[in-house]
Computed example of a mutant assay.
Amino acid sequence: MPGLSRRRLLGAALAGAAGPRAWGAELELHKRFIDDQPATPQVHASTLVELPDGSLMAAWFGGTAERAPDVRIWCSRLRAGAWSAPRAIADGVQPDGSPLPTWNPVLFQASAARGGTLLLFYKVGPDPRQWWGELISSDDGGDHWSPPRRLPDGVLGPIRSKPLMLADGTLLCPSSTEDEAGRWRLHMERSRDMGQSWLPNVPVADPKGYGLIQPSLVVRPDGSVLAFARSRANRIAVTRSRDGGRSWSAAALTSLPNPNAGIEALGLADGRILMVFNPREQGNDWWVGRDRLDLALSGDGGHTWRTVATLEDEPGQEFSYPAAIQTRDGLVHLTYTYQRSHIRHVQLDPRRLG
């Protein structure tokens, strides 16, 4: 495919909480930048979706720098092997003309049975403690978008990772809050009409005070839902719902290390769970530990994990905020922030992960 590079990376055969212990067969990955010529000085927090025609769409926020009032939501579409030039589709300009930054877009493509609408959730506000949720939609694969609609007070939409459409038609959105007192809390938001109205939020208990945000959801074969989240405890946390997201177990820590950075969990068609995450512990500064990005697999519902690949490993750089989907052809596609200057796209065959 034009512009597509091929790179061989070693897959780790075994891993524990401390990281890879042995290396196995080579894993072939396809890697490229979505934005070879970025439209903005900085980019971050990508999201990814497969559209009905089999093409992909990615979105992210970009501008002078995170929190700058010129930060807008940008998107690009992968057609015939090439990503389109980025274009801005949402901003934080207020009715009085004053600009506010936008944050953390999340794409969701409804099935034809659910209307086939493409949704884009995002946040607007000066910072994560004061932002609110907004929503736009498209009925033509993202070529045209509706005017933005502010979500009700207390509803932020999916905070960073993709929502799930449950079997009963409930759109389950993984969300969280960061308040002025520094408290981080998980909650789940639910809508039965594609975001037109919302049921009461469902909080997730954090009795040990791990400090949790930005959950990522996985549906299990038995219909239960797992939510994995970043924490302030240098480990990825997990909680489970067995009733369609109406209640959740108290959060517990997994064995996976993480420096309080964004993660993505993906339930594969074969029943395994793929985790894309930064595997180092946090240092004195928030970005320390985001200079390595790994893939790990669990074949037992998230109880045990083994690291199967290192996507990036460059001391002092940032590779963060991954998104992941499995497309109808069985391939896995990932996007993530590459040194805040680009969004990188990775394509792989999960059968090669072992």
Score class of each variant (00 low, 15 high):
190 R>M: 14
174 P>E: 13
174 P>K: 08
181 A>W: 09
196 Q>N: 06
168 D>K: 03
192 R>W: 11
207 P>V: 02
167 A>R: 11
191 S>K: 01
200 P>D: 12
190 R>K: 09
201 N>M: 08
200 P>F: 06
202 V>Y: 01
177 T>M: 08
182 G>H: 05
186 L>Y: 11
176 S>N: 14
200 P>V: 04
168 D>F: 01
207 P>C: 02
196 Q>D: 10
177 T>C: 10
202 V>D: 06
185 R>G: 11
194 M>N: 15
188 M>Y: 14
172 L>E: 07
174 P>M: 15
176 S>R: 08
186 L>M: 11
186 L>P: 04
179 D>S: 03
189 E>F: 05
186 L>A: 12
168 D>A: 04
197 S>A: 08
188 M>Q: 12
184 W>E: 07
181 A>K: 15
166 L>Y: 02
184 W>R: 10
198 W>E: 06
182 G>E: 07
193 D>R: 02
167 A>I: 07
199 L>W: 13
189 E>M: 12
186 L>K: 14
207 P>T: 03
190 R>A: 13
193 D>A: 13
203 P>H: 11
180 E>K: 10
169 G>F: 03
192 R>N: 14
192 R>P: 07
171 L>Q: 06
196 Q>L: 13
189 E>P: 00
192 R>K: 15
174 P>H: 07
201 N>C: 13
204 V>I: 11
208 K>E: 10
191 S>Q: 09
202 V>E: 08
189 E>H: 02
195 G>E: 00
168 D>E: 03
200 P>L: 02
191 S>E: 14
194 M>P: 02
167 A>L: 13
178 E>S: 07
167 A>Y: 02
203 P>T: 12
202 V>L: 03
186 L>Q: 08
184 W>F: 10
171 L>P: 04
182 G>R: 13
197 S>K: 03
176 S>A: 14
165 M>P: 01
186 L>R: 09
181 A>Y: 04
168 D>P: 09
177 T>S: 12
192 R>S: 14
202 V>K: 03
189 E>I: 09
201 N>Q: 12
185 R>P: 03
184 W>H: 08
203 P>C: 07
198 W>S: 11
193 D>H: 13
170 T>H: 01
183 R>G: 03
166 L>H: 02
183 R>L: 08
193 D>E: 05
166 L>V: 07
173 C>Y: 01
183 R>E: 05
